[in-house]
């Protein structure tokens, strides 16, 4: 049968993929998608923990509630983030992160 570690490993791999995407891709929208991947990976481990730590024969729903909140916040974050990207694109005509370096010291 499937063990908790298997879920955690899959979750960690998904997180690593998302992390690699953030580090490697230059398109800010792709980077944003990879961030969503990382968030979802953490959701997976939360749900796994929730299922494996049973309380009175039921999953521990605290973990799932946290996932619920993460999804809600992620939805808000996506909306705001995309709006910012649109605004940025209007100002700069680019979605390439290397072209956005006005914060350079």
């Amino acid at each position: 049968m499937v063990t908790l570690n298997a879920y955690l490993l899959v979750s960690g791999l998904l997180f690593a993929i998302g992390f690699a995407g953030v580090l490697l891709r230059r398109n800010i929208i792709i980077i944003f998608m990879c961030l969503e991947l990382m968030l979802s990976a953490s959701n997976l481990s939360l749900v796994a923990f929730s299922r494996f730590n049973t309380v009175n024969g039921l999953p521990n729903y605290n973990g799932q509630i946290l996932v619920f909140f993460i999804i809600a916040v992620a939805a808000a974050e996506v909306a705001v983030g995309l709006a910012i990207i649109v605004a940025l694109f209007r100002a700069r005509r680019t979605t390439h992160v290397e072209d956005m370096n006005s914060m350079k010291g």
Partner: peptide, 8 residues
């Protein structure tokens, strides 16, 4: 983490 779904 070594326990499987059957054990929970």
């Amino acid at each position: 983490g070594k326990k499987s779904l059957v054990e929970a």
